[in-house]
């Protein structure tokens, strides 16, 4: 369980003269195996919140705990998936997927075995010796996802992972992600600016507003996982999307922007 209690984050410029409040007293509790989407305009602090949970950023006020223990840095219980994939261009697919295990000191044979199994699972069997630059965006993000899964984390932290992909690839990746989670349930915190994406994937949608970043509303998605057949042609699906769109539009007229990270 992830507990975020009154978490605020203020960025200070180096000389201390300027301050930007990225997060303002955010409260959020995420249950185990729950899929939570953080949705909001750019500047709403959703990526900041994700990185705080990941232990990559500190916060200035409040409390962030995982299973009752205060977050003090990255840990093997969490793994990140990055918007721009963050693959090492000098290393082949296999080495990239096994990188988290390599850092943990897992011996080469064991980590190669794990990586190969994941590549198979994620549809990249046969590509283990290819280099990232030879892969399409979708395949690169599959590598990024496999790398995160390889360390077998409790929680997947995904920072607009499909934002850089074209629409068709994005849909395929969304379906694959849900399929993988059915086989092996995990807690997922998923940053996105796509309303459609949030409704397709999440159990709950945390709608955030910008400047300063606040939780403006938490919405339960009325579909279970795995999603029932034809759920996206039901009226509720579009109603929810339209509702989110109205909310985001209202924020935009308040000075925020809907697109971007």
């Amino acid at each position: 369980m992830i507990e975020i209690n009154g978490c605020s984050k203020v960025y200070r410029s180096r000389d201390g003269t300027r301050e930007v409040q990225a997060l303002d007293r955010v409260h959020l509790t995420i249950a185990e195996k729950e899929f939570v989407a953080l949705l909001g305009p750019s500047g709403c602090g959703k990526t900041t919140l994700l990185k705080i949970i990941g232990g990559l950023l500190s916060w200035t006020e409040g409390d962030v705990r995982i299973d009752g223990k205060k977050v003090t840095g990255p840990g093997p219980d969490r793994a990140l998936v990055f918007q721009n994939f963050a693959l090492m261009p000098w290393a082949n697919v296999l080495t990239n997927v096994a990188f988290g295990l390599e850092l943990k000191g897992v011996p080469k044979e064991a980590r190669t075995g794990t990586a190969m199994r994941l590549l198979e699972k994620i549809g990249l069997a046969g590509f283990e010796s290819a280099y990232p630059r030879h892969l399409s965006g979708g395949m690169q993000q599959r590598v990024g996802l496999a790398r995160a899964l390889a360390v077998n984390p409790v929680t997947l932290l995904m920072d607009e992972p499909f934002g850089a992909l074209d629409a068709q690839t994005r849909r395929l990746m969304q379906d694959d992600l849900l399929r993988l989670l059915d086989q092996e349930p995990k807690t997922v915190v998923f940053v996105t600016h796509g309303m459609d994406e949030a409704v397709r994937l999440a159990d709950r949608i945390v709608l955030m507003s910008a400047r300063p970043g606040r939780v403006s509303e938490i919405i339960d998605v009325p579909f279970g996982r795995p999603r029932p057949a034809g759920y996206d042609s039901e009226p509720v699906f579009n109603e929810l999307k339209n509702y989110l769109w109205e909310k985001l539009k209202a924020m935009q007229t308040d000075g925020g922007k809907v697109n971007g990270g």
Binding site: L80, M88, L103
Partner: peptide
């Protein structure tokens, strides 16, 4: 690449590992 450094940090890389496994190859 700062994103690569962040990625390695998120997987628990030590300062030494950051240097050997990310900085050096990326600067090569």
């Amino acid at each position: 690449d700062h994103e690569l450094l962040e990625m390695a940090r998120s997987f628990g890389a030590s300062e030494g590992a950051l240097f050997r496994k990310i900085m050096l190859p990326d600067a090569l």
